[in-house]
């Protein structure tokens, strides 16, 4: 479904991603693990076309997407939930959803409508007219996910969804994502490995801008050495 092939991405003159490759298959949840600042976010941004890679290729369902602008990438079916939420603070919950709403032909009948999203996030359903800027961090996180869902993606790029959330909210989030993963493939970047491993089928571990390890989620769950070396538990 998604194939990232030896991409190199720069910010100005600093070389952030070095020959990063990864794949996500249909129906899979793939976690991208690693400490803060190893290039997880940049990987996500590179896939999304927000900081296009300077070399290497990204393929999505047979399309070469690394030269496309972000909106085209989104319209091919990749939804992006950014690291720091980035809700539109001056817009209401409802308006945030309206901006992102997009139906896709392939999904006729099983589309994510606003109603369906409100069902999944009952907290949001209670306050459709609240300004997004006036919501708590947890609510904002729910809103960003909801906002991406109404765009009806086939693949979801989730960047650090659990960051800065209270443990209870994280559990809630986990439940939601378990529902979502039934119909949408997910690439999940996380520092919180416990959280990520309880969702993921397969994992990549990143360090210093490179993917250094790839394994099934179970394997990492059991391998204490790897955990100690690369992750924070």
């Amino acid at each position: 479904m998604l194939k990232v092939d030896t991409i190199n991405t720069y910010y100005g003159s600093s070389h952030i991603l070095q020959d990063v490759s990864l794949t996500v298959n249909q129906g899979e949840v793939v976690a991208l693990l690693g400490r803060n600042g190893v290039g997880k976010t940049t990987t996500m941004r590179s896939i999304m076309g927000l900081t296009p890679p300077r070399s290497g290729e990204v393929y999505y369902c047979g399309h070469k997407i690394n030269t496309l602008p972000p909106y085209r990438i989104n319209r091919l079916g990749i939804g992006y939930v950014p690291e720091d939420r980035q809700v539109f603070p001056d817009l209401t919950v409802e308006e945030n959803l309206l901006v992102a709403q997009r139906s896709r032909n392939s999904k006729k009948g099983e589309e994510w409508t606003r109603e369906k999203v409100y069902e999944l996030f009952p907290e949001l359903a209670k306050m459709p007219n609240r300004l997004a800027g006036r919501m708590s961090g947890g609510e904002q996180q729910m809103l960003t996910i909801a906002r991406t869902l109404v765009g009806n993606p086939d693949l979801l790029l989730l960047d650090e969804p659990s960051e800065g959330l209270a443990p209870k909210v994280v559990l809630n989030l986990l439940d939601v994502l378990k529902v979502i993963k039934k119909s949408i493939s997910i690439l999940l970047a996380e520092q919180n490995a416990v959280f990520a491993l309880s969702l993921a089928d397969r994992c990549y571990i990143m360090e210093k801008g490179k993917t250094v390890y790839e394994a099934a989620a179970e394997e990492i769950r059991e391998n204490k050495d790897i955990q100690k070396k690369y992750l924070i538990f």
Binding site: P70, Y71, N74, P82, D90, E95, R102, T148
Partner: peptide, 16 residues
Amino acid sequence: RAASVNREMVGALGVN
């Protein structure tokens, strides 16, 4: 209005 606070995000949500 959304673009006036966050152009990048609007693009990532599929707006041309």
